[in-house]
Design a protein around this nucleic acid. Structure first.
Lengths: 250, 250
DNA sequence: CATTTTCGTTCAGTATTGCCGAACATAGTT
DNA sequence: AACTATGTTCGGCAATACTGAACGAAAATG
């Protein structure tokens, strides 16, 4: 259970934090204790400390605990230090408008894609808070656009991990995926053909840093019926064109 | 130095986290130790633990440490659980377009305003990452719109704290501020006349929850020259109109 | 170019302190 | 009313987090 943390009690405390999720944003003491195989009173003390510091709040109705607003300040600092979001946003809007589809923006956090922004075209009144969401690289447009241009060593690490089949279209076989990545290198863009979500297609283009490594990727995504091969290649070119001023500048 | 945390080592670890800021996003071991009056090796062990868990990363060039991307996942969960941002965003866009000025959206985290979103009109190609930023209530449009409709007990707590003068226009005197809040209650909207930033005016409207308490506030803001009294009252009415469907529904 | 200072890092010893486990209070269920 | 959940409290002991000094490396100094 404990894994070589220098400060074990902090390690435990962080595991408590990580119990909270989108599916279960509110948790009770016993619940957490059961999840982690820890003592109730231990969890209670950890939660009490987080609470005193503002990172966790107790819902007086349910007596359950949830993540407090304090932690948002961390994301503010991280995002500012990262700096990418603000640079990209105007370009993402332009791409969303021109394709008239949702435009996603993410960075590699191997073996996952970390989403930083989703921009909807003005015609769709919808929005989505996506900052901080993650998805596997091997079955998303953004992820494959990144994988295709990564050093072989890193790629192997990703392929070594088990690849879950999200839909019938998911490319789980390393050989098949490798062939697809080769194709992506030739085209300069990646296609996600319902590999992550059934009925959703996606075109993604990588963004390179000044050192030539993959710094980020941008995609447009929508119902498969709206993404025939013609639309895909046109969107791909459009994205590449819009992002040109950002290439090799980061 | 230590303040009644149930788990003291966690309390210390959280203080280490809080050393990182917008101004100083990268910090060294000794630097942090000095800031907190702690032992170098203690800080080192704490950082090593955070690092192992992914919350802190060491910059190999400078050997300094900075906040890692893992913490963004927390903000994702918090934001989702909160739910407000996604509900408001379409309304914020409409307000930004109609006023042709930046539209801010925040919630009360007394005595501060917690900003959740800033939406620019399409004519301004600018954007700004604001999620997690904070500002005092007493000198911002959003904050005053909230203060004006808060229970007296909470208001007193805020007024009791020292009020710093950001500009010559900042209302630091509790009596003057109280008079201004009375005016806001009558009008139904708040005006920030360069009280936080010189040259910037702002009109803000509170949003009430189902229980009648202030749940959030929305403002438009820009150079003072563009905000004459006529524009202000027109914008105020417009914001109120757009937000009407959200009032007392949260 | 030698010297000094400062940095991050390591380690062993000790006293702090964090965890265990049982008991308690409360609320909801049977 | 008995039962089973829950969150919470508390004493005691063993784990462990911190101290403080020493290390090597890298800047900054002379």
């Amino acid at each position: 259970m404990d894994e070589g943390f220098a400060v074990k009690s902090l390690g435990r405390a962080l595991k408590v934090l990580e119990c909270f999720s989108i599916e279960q944003p509110e948790l009770g003491v016993s619940e957490i204790a059961k999840m982690l195989g820890m003592q109730k009173s231990t969890v209670f003390n950890i939660l009490a400390t987080y609470q005193k510091a503002g990172y966790i709040v107790q819902n007086p109705k349910t007596t359950k605990y949830y993540l407090g607003l304090k932690a948002l300040h961390l994301s503010y600092i991280i995002n500012n230090h990262l700096g990418l979001r603000d640079t990209f946003l105007p370009y993402l809007s332009r791409i969303a408008e021109q394709a008239n589809e949702v435009c996603y923006f993410g960075i590699p956090d191997t073996p996952e894609v970390l989403y930083l922004e989703a921009v909807y075209p003005v015609t769709q009144i919808q929005t989505r808070n996506i900052l901080g969401e993650r998805a596997p690289m091997y079955c998303t447009g953004l992820g494959k656009a990144m994988l295709a241009f990564m050093p072989e060593a890193q790629l192997e690490q990703v392929l070594a991990k088990e690849m879950r089949s999200f839909t019938n279209f998911t490319l789980c076989d390393p050989k098949v995926l490798r062939a697809n990545l080769e194709e992506i290198r030739l085209n300069g863009y990646a296609i996600d053909n319902m590999e992550h979500e059934y009925g959703v297609r996606c075109v993604a283009v990588p963004v390179f840093g000044a050192d030539g490594s993959v710094a980020a990727a941008v995609s447009v995504s929508g119902p498969s019926l709206r993404f025939d091969s013609e639309t895909i290649s046109r969107d791909a070119q459009m994205i590449q064109e819009v992002l040109r001023p950002l290439q090799r500048c980061l």
